[in-house]
């Protein structure tokens, strides 16, 4: 894959990459570090990606691994609920964000990948390395928990 194509594909995924890191890392600096490292690793490994149609799921998997790296490096439980966000950011649905972050990571990642990023169940299963049935079950459970949390705010999902 040529650099121009690689850059185009990564840039096209920018918002997806950002949302995924928001769901896994509380510190903005860590999020940027994770994405940088994932992009560099993807670039280094690009010759091995024989079917470029799968670039997006491939890079997403790499980014999840990088986020886990950082979580492990921190040697602490990553508390995401109420994580610091830049003040005054427009367009953020804070109750929804807090509800999503309150989910267990097993439920949170399928929600981000499926509902926010538009991956299909089969792709999410591939990215997270779990059976499709597990993805479906986790999505269903997550939606139930989110509905309960948001209904306390007088919101519907």
């Amino acid at each position: 894959m040529e650099k121009s194509e690689f850059t185009r594909r990564v840039t096209g995924m920018r918002e997806r990459l950002y949302r995924l890191t928001c769901g896994m890392l509380p510190e903005p600096q860590d999020r940027m570090d994770a994405v940088q490292e994932a992009v560099l690793r993807a670039w280094a490994k690009r010759d091995g990606l024989r079917n470029e149609a799968h670039f997006e799921t491939w890079l997403t998997r790499i980014l999840i691994n990088e986020c886990h790296n950082i979580q492990r490096a921190r040697r602490r439980v990553v508390a995401l609920e109420g994580a610091p966000e830049p003040a005054g950011r427009e367009g953020v649905d804070v109750p929804l964000r807090d509800a999503v972050l309150a989910l267990d990571e097993k439920l949170r990642l399928p929600v981000i990948l499926y509902y926010m990023d538009g991956y299909g169940v089969a792709e999410v299963a591939c990215i997270l390395r779990v059976p499709e049935g597990t993805v479906k079950s986790r999505l269903r459970r997550a939606r139930g928990e989110l509905k309960d949390m948001l209904s306390e705010e007088g919101r519907a999902l």
Binding site: E15, Y18, C22, P86, R97
Partner: peptide, 10 residues
């Protein structure tokens, strides 16, 4: 609406 949980990348 889902995507507004985290907004756009800063």
């Amino acid at each position: 609406q889902w995507q507004r949980a985290f907004g756009e990348a800063p």
